[in-house]
């Protein structure tokens, strides 16, 4: 060990000054961001998220002039059925569920829990890092898809529909925030967040949309859908045909303001639950400890 230090080492009773709440939030944000952008599978996820860009390019390449679709229509279909319905839950699950779960699995959480930082600041900072990365990827994919839809070949270019892009970008971030807190909570509170997340987001949510009754109110997508632009296809307007017969689900709509309130409430609820789990659960060492 070095006896002679070039730097002044803090000695007993000479601890560095601690910053305020924001210092802790920014510390968790910075660390979280660094960890996220260095994740080995980030490139793969980015590639998957950008796949929709290829669809309008292929349509433009293969379609004949007389059958050319309207670029904006293609964009709306892609943004609704892929970006919002698939990639928002997918990105949330991939990044959000691992925000805390990875620290628990790797047992590095003990370093963090023995720091005198407010748990809420740590959760908030980490979540901000996730939201930044996930939103950036989603927005990049949305923007490139929009550009590809509206500028290639014979497809319609309508700059006025930039508003549409901003609309979906807004819904996208609301989805990232709501699904993200739910995923983060699953990561903190359960042993298999990915499994539960897949079951919830890609099992329960699509299923609830076709089950008769009002169980679709117990999905996040119901409230995101309420914010879709008027031209967007309705995800729940579907006729279900089975061997037993055929029925059309009666869909109760939600007002946009109510949807926003529910999304905000879900965000706050799962954020609070995550902080509560971190404060009350015993994580040290392994998940064996309760």
């Amino acid at each position: 060990m070095n006896e002679s230090n070039t730097h002044q080492f803090h000695t007993l009773g000479d601890q560095p000054v601690q910053g305020g709440y924001l210092t802790y939030v920014m510390a968790a944000f910075g660390q979280g961001l660094l960890l996220l952008i260095r994740r080995p599978r980030l490139l793969l996820v980015s590639g998957i998220t950008l796949l929709p860009v290829l669809i309008p390019i292929m349509i433009a390449f293969f379609s004949r002039d007389q059958y050319a679709s309207d670029g904006t229509d293609i964009f709306i279909q892609l943004a609704t059925r892929l970006h919002i319905s698939v990639f928002v839950p997918l990105l949330s699950l991939f990044f959000g569920s691992m925000l805390i779960a990875e620290e628990i699995e790797s047992q590095t959480i003990t370093y963090l829990l023995t720091r005198p930082s407010p748990r809420s600041a740590w959760v908030l900072g980490r979540f901000m890092a996730y939201a930044l990365v996930a939103t950036s990827l989603l927005w990049l994919s949305l923007t490139l898809t929009y550009v590809a839809c509206t500028t290639l070949a014979d497809l319609d270019f309508a700059p006025i529909h930039l508003k549409l892009l901003a609309w979906y970008a807004g819904i996208g971030i609301l989805g990232i925030l709501t699904y993200g807190t739910l995923s983060m909570y699953l990561g903190a509170g359960t042993k298999r967040p990915i499994v539960y997340g897949v079951l919830l987001f890609f099992g329960w949510e699509p299923m609830a949309r076709v089950i008769p009754g009002i169980v679709d109110f117990l999905t996040v997508m119901k409230y995101l859908e309420a914010l879709f632009p008027p031209a967007a296809p309705r995800l729940a307007d579907m006729a279900v045909q089975s061997t037993l017969g055929e029925y059309t689900k009666l869909v109760y709509s939600v007002q946009a303001t109510h949807a926003l309130l529910v999304l905000a409430a879900l965000f706050c609820f799962f954020m609070t639950m995550t902080v509560w789990v971190l404060r009350s659960k015993e994580f040290a060492g392994t998940r064996m400890a309760r």
Binding site: N2, N5, T6, H7, Q8, F9, H10, P16, V17, Q18, G19, T23, Y24, M26, A27, A28, G30, Q31, L34, Y111, L112, R115, P116, S117, W122
Partner: peptide, 22 residues
């Protein structure tokens, strides 16, 4: 980054990280 989680500001975190490693 663990220094930052402790609540240190950037400058302190840099100095103490360097001196601790040293």
């Amino acid at each position: 980054w663990l220094n930052r989680q402790w609540g240190m500001r950037k400058k302190d975190a840099i100095e103490t990280a360097e001196s601790a490693c040293e």
